[in-house]
Design a protein around this nucleic acid. Structure first.
Lengths: 265, 265
DNA sequence: ACCTGAACACCGTTCAAGT
DNA sequence: ACCTGAACACCGTTCAAGT
């Protein structure tokens, strides 16, 4: 019966679009909500606690009731500030990705003058984010984008605006900026999703209560019948991830550059 | 109390590894389970029904109870054949990906003699799969791989074995085959995840009961403050997906080729 | 203004019991 | 051998009620 367009909750308006983005997301001083007294609940705090909780226990464990408990509050209280579980997940994603937005001046400093330097900086920032929150990155990657100009993992209007503005500043046509945006996002998405999913392997206990003596051999798949896999097993298990990222990123930038050149013919 | 290592269910052993892989997965004659009489329930049928159900209603709607209802059976009956919901999801993924495995002779015919032709063929096969089951592809993409040699979206031992064997046959060293495997999977994963997620936008009703007059304007995000996004809005909404896929795929193959060349120095 | 108790409809899963 | 009824623990969510 309640029209979902009007949240009626405080903090429902994209919390402080310009102010809050410089302090890196998810950094609520961790002691503060331990001493939760009376009206110490609000949207930002809930989202921070949720991120913390997922980092520690995994996404499947994030439950309105458990999150309430984690905050020392009944689950129903959360609904004052968050429009249900879906809204909470969406807000988590927004908060994490918005951390990538910095104002123009600071961006110039960080990234240097060229478009390659900017894309290098952005790619590394996204990678840092993914590796800091391996449980959350799949959420960023697969939640349905609200619009075609919010391609994962760059799911923030601010960040996409930065992206396009920077490239156009550096001489890209609109068409080329869009193609670069497409190439950049799909490269980053695929690479980081795979890197993160092989890393976070058994970082999380998943459900650490009942299954303790169960997982030590995660799954000793018998590789008879698969001679080639068997032969490269050790190769595949190694992670030369750092070097591989740099090289494939450079390749991707070269591809964009080639794209520009072919445009002048 | 029950040790989870011993499923005690029929079909628990990775159903007929050599026999069942040639008939393309997901092809249970669709009329058959309409006339479900007595013992007409089995693992394959359950998995097929689940795939059908997700294609139609979306992943979030797939529930043991609803799937039971869809099959004309009480939900509890499913537990004879499927080791819980997680096991069902895993089996769905396996069934879909196994459809990419064809025997060597047939593969030569389809793909031609070169490694490029094989990778072209495989890439298009995966893309076909992704577009046929847009609701399921994110599952393939993000479910935790059981081993590092099962990188999404190629989550099948048979398919990965095919991949490596074919490349080594064509003269790749093991190291290069593995690098190609890495590059191929992360390219395909990123590209297809983004293509599918922008396509399946509102293919599914999500929950078509209560919210009917709600979604027509999916989310008219106000784009003031975002001049560049606004200017490229129409560009970003277009889908030149087919051509883009071919071009970026060729680029990726070129990258592998360059990789081989640099190896000879 | 902010939180809670109680309730509703719905989950996944187990197990003794039916046929 | 195969399916079901009943039950358990746990969800998300609503709303009148407490403070």
């Amino acid at each position: 019966m309640n029209s979902p367009g009007t949240p009626q909750t405080p903090g429902g308006d994209r919390s402080s679009r310009s102010g809050g983005s410089t302090r890196s997301a998810g950094t609520t001083r961790p002691n503060e909500h331990a001493a939760s007294g009376r009206g110490a609940l609000n949207r930002d705090l809930i989202v921070s606690a949720a991120i913390e909780y997922v980092d520690e226990h995994g996404l499947a464990m994030l439950t309105m009731r458990r999150l309430g408990e984690h905050l020392g509050v009944e689950a129903m209280s959360l609904y004052r500030y968050v429009n249900g579980r879906e809204d909470l997940l969406e807000e988590i994603v927004r908060r994490m990705v918005d951390g990538l937005h910095v104002d123009r001046a600071r961006r110039e400093l960080l990234a240097g003058p060229g478009w390659q330097a900017y894309l290098q900086w952005l790619a590394h920032a996204v990678r840092r984010l993914a590796r800091q929150h391996p449980q959350l990155f799949p959420l960023i990657a697969t939640r349905h984008p609200a619009a075609p100009w919010l391609r994962p993992p760059l799911r923030s209007l601010d960040v996409v605006e930065d992206f396009l503005a920077t490239l156009v500043d550096r001489g890209f046509t609109m068409e080329n900026a869009v193609m670069a945006y497409r190439a950049f996002t799909s490269y980053l998405l695929g690479y980081l999703l795979l890197e993160v999913s092989t890393i976070s392997g058994r970082t999380v206990a998943e459900d650490s209560l009942t299954e303790v003596a169960n997982s030590p051999p995660p799954s000793p798949i018998p590789l008879d019948d698969y001679p080639h896999i068997q032969r490269v097993e050790t190769l595949l298990s190694q992670d030369h991830t750092d070097l591989e990222f740099e090289l494939s990123l450079e390749d991707m930038l070269d591809r964009i550059e080639r794209l520009l050149a072919s445009d002048l013919t």
